[in-house]
Every structure is written in structure tokens, then in C-alpha cells.
Design a protein around this nucleic acid. Structure first.
Lengths: 341, 341
DNA sequence: CTGAAAGCGCTTACAG
DNA sequence: CTGAAAGCGCTTACAG
């Protein structure tokens, strides 16, 4: 049986009001009374019903998070950052998986808006929902912050990692190592791949080299690794001589980078001796492989923390406003790239 | 602004009661009336307040999950299973990270018990909380199911993977390949390592071989890989000649297996040519490395699904009872083991 | 310092 | 088929 505040009041011989006051500590209560109430609470192992509290306070101290995939290591790091910060501010976190589906994402958010949650954080929002105006609509009535995703001209709060700059830095690192025949490896459709591709194309143009775009279907699922590996194996010596026509690969995420390494290895091409590979994100796996992957750290933890901070700020603020915070990336040099000068 | 059921009633020109009835569809409503109400709901984009619903129904259609670490790929797969099944039954899922801390685990659970949630699932419960009777206490008043963890003589619902059998099968596979000098790699304190170690010791005894236990501090954090790798490098040729004194490693999880592979490789010992390595769990990384890791699949997805099914069953059941469901493991042969016969 | 009462947004007997 | 009223477990003016 679960006790209510009324049970505690009876046990302590005081009114419900008084019990509420000692729980919340927001009104003076005589020391002796307080003692009695606390004893009753302890004895009964009483916990206030958060539904009732939320209903009357119009505040639940919960943040809702919508994520495109709970098994994705990138998102999981972001979630960890969100949780860390939320907990520090006395908020709980509600995680919802929309499995990369735009309709599921909308449904999850609609449910959350129903007051179970004080604010919403969306990781990697679907471009479709962004463009349709869905997020602007929700933003107008509930504190909401998006992490990454399509953000142009949107009245929505954003925490973004600086993917352009990170991409440029990675490419320049490769160029500094003497590479110019650089291939670009990306997944299906995600705004983040598009951003990077634009930077890459510009960079190749400046270099006077042609762009080589290698595209795999799913960019984020587990089997990207094998898909990319097969793809690499299939083009080698047919379309390109790896190590000659292509001396380095820029990959849109670390999973793809691992795929490239594996694919090359299967074809007898060793990384970094014969070809260099750079990843993006710095998920934990990138430092578990041989060679360890040189990559661009998106600082997922910071992304999550910043978003949670924003969300909590929004809750406490009186008016809605729309901000965009940019988090810098950082090049992490490990073992998968080598100078050819 | 968020609308309430009263706003909808006014808009539709009916009573609150009627609106409630069309939302829930649990009483007859005239077609015409229904139409009007639905139009109002649609127009106002109305969503019932789940707090109010939960309060009066004494049911929220949410499952609370407590997990020792959201960034751990093993748990993440289990979570995915839970979510899948919960969603199919109309339940949402609430994830709480206790970061491997027993006190945090207790606090998270206590909060959840406060009715925000209809049932609780605990992944890998802390042995400390199990032994102290905490889980039995909670179980007596709230539907609760634990996944894995210490389960002996407990009045608690469990979904367990058959780690003994899985361990035995892995060891027998190694023995079938001609190995007998098998080392056992484990982490600090987790009941799951203890179970496996017992099976291993028995097996070595039956074989007439001595047990070689290699222990690393943290068994589950990211840096197990490097820790294990260093450990392996440090014992090679000092305590044991790897490939001679030890011809195979049984590792309590895949991360440790990857660490062993890396550590051997650093010492110029190739897997599986010079030494065999078998992991446990079958987390996604195990098939991304070179060589791909031969391992024991714990079927995390099924573990999660089964636990969610149990939890929902418990909610719907009238009386509390305590069950234990065992999920079988499966040997996944990949590339990291080789016959030496 | 303390308590009775109103009210948060719903659902569900009860009465018609 | 429909509505007025009670009540879920709390908090917070209001009055003392």
C-alpha cells in the first residue's frame, strides 16, 4: 500500500496543510511539529505523489528527451550529458526513442507536451519535421531545444556543434599531411551529411581536385560498418585504385571510418600505411580499434549539457526566445592518418 | 497556451463528461455529438493532461527503467527491447541512469515508486541492494522485475540470461578446439563475473588444469579495453608466455575480449593464429573489429522484451507473485578462435 | 505557527 | 445518450 499525505497527517496528528509545509519547507513550522511529521514520514516511508504535485504546481521537474535511436553511441553520450546536468538542477529525464521515424518523433513530442514534462530536448530532429514547421509550432507553446539538425531560419532553440568548422579542420589536417585525393564517405539523408559534403566539395574545388562521393544507405545503423567495408572492397581497382587515386578518406562518422579501415584491410590495403582515414564524432569505439581512429570530437557530452541548461533556463524564463549555441569540435589525432610528404 | 478538457467542452457546446467519453470511447455517445467534440479537439490540438489522468486512474501507462549506465552498449540493447515491447502494449518508458551507484539506484527507484510509473524494471541490480532486502521491500508494494543480477533466494521477479550455461558452452567450444590452458578475464565486482568464474574454475578442475584469473578494475566502463590491453602486455613473458602457457582467453564481456586482442597485437601475438579469444554478450562492437569476436550472445533484446512483458503482466495481475524466466544464450562463432589440434 | 477550503484537470458512479 | 457532482493527492492563498 502506498500512503498519501492524509495518512501521514493522521499519523502525526496534524493537518494535511502542515505536512505539506514540512515537506516543502516553504512556511514556518514549529520545531516540535516538524519533528513529529518527519517521524511519521520516515516511519511510513512516505513519498509524495508526483502526479498530484505536478498537476497543481503545473511543473513536474522532468525534461523530456526525444532521440532517434537509443542504441546509437553518439546519442547515448549526449543523453549522458543531459542527465548529468538535469540531475544537478533537480530535474529528472524522460527518454523517448523515435527510431529515426518522423511520425514517431511527432507523436512522442505531442505526448510530452501534454505537461508530463517541463521542457523538451530533441536530438537530431528529423529535417522533415523541421521544414514542415512542426518544431516552430511546438516551440511556441513549450520550452524546446534541438540538438543539431536542420536549423536555418527556424524559430527554435538550438545547440549545434560546429560541423562545418570541424569538417574543414579535418580536411585541412589531411591536406597538411600531403593528401589531395580525398574521398568523402557519407550516409543516406541527414542534414549533417549535407553540411559536411558542401564543405568537402568547396575544399576539393579550391584544391583543383575532383570530388569523390561514396554514399552508403543507412548512415547510423550498426551495419554501416559492414556496408561501407563492402562498398570499399567493391570499388577498389574497379573504379579507383585505393592508395593511388584515393590516398585518404574523410568519413561522416566513426562507424563509416571503421568500415573503410575494415574494407581496406580485406583488400590487403593497410591503414594508415597505404591510405589515411579520418572519422567524425569520436564515439568510444573509435579508440578501441586497431588502428585507433583519428577523428573530430563533437563533444557530445557538452552538447547534452548545454541543451539541458538551455531547457531549464527556458522553463524558468518568463518569455520564449530563440537562441542558438554553437559548440566547437576538436580534432583528435590518433593512428589512422599518415603523412605522405 | 494549453487547453483543458473544459475548453474543449465549451468549444463543442457539451459537458466535460461527454468530452471525456469521446476521448476514452468507453460510453455510448451520439454520432453527431461525437463529431462536434472531435472537431473541437482537432481544432484546439487538445491532448489530455496525463498527470490528471494518472492521478485519477491510478495508472500512468509508463514503465520505469533503472539502468547502471546509459552509455553501455549492453544495457542500451536491453532498453531497446523494453521500449519495443512497451510501445506495442501502449506503455511509455521512463529511463533512469544510476551510474552504477547503489544509493543512486535506491533513490531512483524510490522516486519511481511514487506512482509516476506503473511498474519498475531494473537492469543489472546492484548486489548490495539485493542483499539488503531493498528489492524485496519494493517488490512487495510495486510491480518490479530485475534483469540479471544476484537472484538467489529472492522474492523478486527476475528475467535472467543463462550465464552458467553460456559460459560452459563457450569453454567447451574452446576445449573442442584443443585448448586447455585457458585464462579467465574478469572485472571488479559484479555477480555476473562471479557466476562465470565458478563455472570456469570447475571446468579447469575437471580438466586437471590450474585456473588463471586475470582481473581488471572496472569491468564495464569504456577504458576496460585499454586497461585489459595493458594488463595483457604486462604479464606476457613475465608471468605467462602467451601462446604457450595460455592458448586461449575466456573474457567476461566483449570489451575485455577486444582488450585482449589489442594487448596481444601490441605484443606481436596475433589472434586467432597464436592465441584464441572468446567474448561474452555479443554487443555490436564485437562484429566490427578485426578479427570479429567469437562470443556468447546474451540476446539482450529478448531479455528486455521479456522483462517488459512480465512487468505489464504484473500490472494487470491482481496478486503479486515472483517468477524467474531464464533466457538462453547462444554461441556466436566468428573469427577470434582457432583450432590447435 | 496552524487548519479549512478551493482548485489543478481529469474520470466515473449516479441520476436522469 | 447526457450532465452535475464527487474525488484522485496534492499546494496555496486566506483566515485565524
Amino acid at each position: 500500500m502506498k500512503y498519501t499525505i492524509g495518512d501521514v497527517a493522521r499519523e502525526a496528528g496534524v493537518s494535511i496543510t502542515t505536512v505539506s509545509r514540512v515537506i516543502n519547507g516553504n512556511y514556518p513550522v514549529k520545531a516540535e511539529t516538524k519533528r513529529k511529521v518527519e517521524a511519521a514520514i520516515k516511519k511510513m516511508n512516505y513519498e509524495p505523489n508526483p502526479l498530484a504535485q505536478g498537476l497543481i504546481r503545473n511543473k513536474t521537474f522532468y525534461l523530456g528527451v526525444v532521440v532517434p535511436g537509443i542504441t546509437n553511441m553518439f546519442f547515448t553520450e549526449v543523453l549522458h550529458g543531459i542527465e548529468k546536468l538535469a540531475k544537478a538542477y533537480g530535474y529528472g529525464v524522460f527518454i523517448n526513442d523515435s527510431e529515426g521515424d518522423a511520425a514517431a518523433e511527432r507523436n512522442n513530442i505531442k505526448k510530452l507536451v501534454g505537461r508530463l514534462v517541463d521542457a523538451i530536448i530533441v536530438i537530431d530532429p528529423q529535417t522533415e519535421n523541421m521544414l514542415s514547421g512542426f518544431f516552430e509550432e511546438v516551440s511556441a507553446q513549450t520550452p524546446l531545444v534541438c540538438i543539431n539538425g536542420y536549423s536555418k531560419d527556424m524559430n527554435v532553440n538550438f545547440v549545434l556543434s560546429n560541423e562545418e568548422k570541424g569538417t574543414k579542420e579535418a580536411l585541412e589536417y589531411l591536406i597538411g599531411l600531403g593528401h589531395s585525393r580525398i574521398a568523402f564517405v557519407r550516409g543516406g539523408n541527414s542534414y549533417s551529411y549535407d553540411i559536411k559534403e558542401a564543405v568537402y566539395r568547396q575544399c576539393m574545388e579550391d584544391l583543383g581536385e575532383r570530388s569523390i562521393i561514396l554514399s552508403t544507405r543507412d548512415g547510423n545503423s550498426t551495419d554501416v560498418v559492414d556496408n561501407v567495408a563492402e562498398h570499399i572492397a567493391s570499388i577498389h581497382k574497379k573504379e579507383y585504385e585505393i592508395g593511388v587515386d584515393i590516398t585518404a578518406f574523410f568519413c561522416c562518422n566513426d562507424l563509416m571510418a571503421i568500415g573503410v579501415v575494415n574494407g581496406c584491410s580485406a583488400g590487403g590495403i593497410e591503414v594508415p600505411d597505404s591510405v589515411s582515414v579520418i572519422g567524425f564524432d569520436n564515439i568510444v569505439i573509435s579508440q578501441m580499434t586497431r588502428p585507433k581512429i583519428t577523428t573530430v570530437d563533437q563533444n557530445m557530452r557538452a552538447l547534452g549539457e548545454q541543451a539541458a541548461k538551455e531547457a531549464i533556463g527556458l522553463i524558468e524564463a518568463s518569455e520564449l526566445k530563440y537562441e542558438r549555441v554553437i559548440i566547437d569540435t576538436k580534432l583528435i589525432v590518433r593512428e589512422s592518418c599518415k603523412s605522405i610528404i
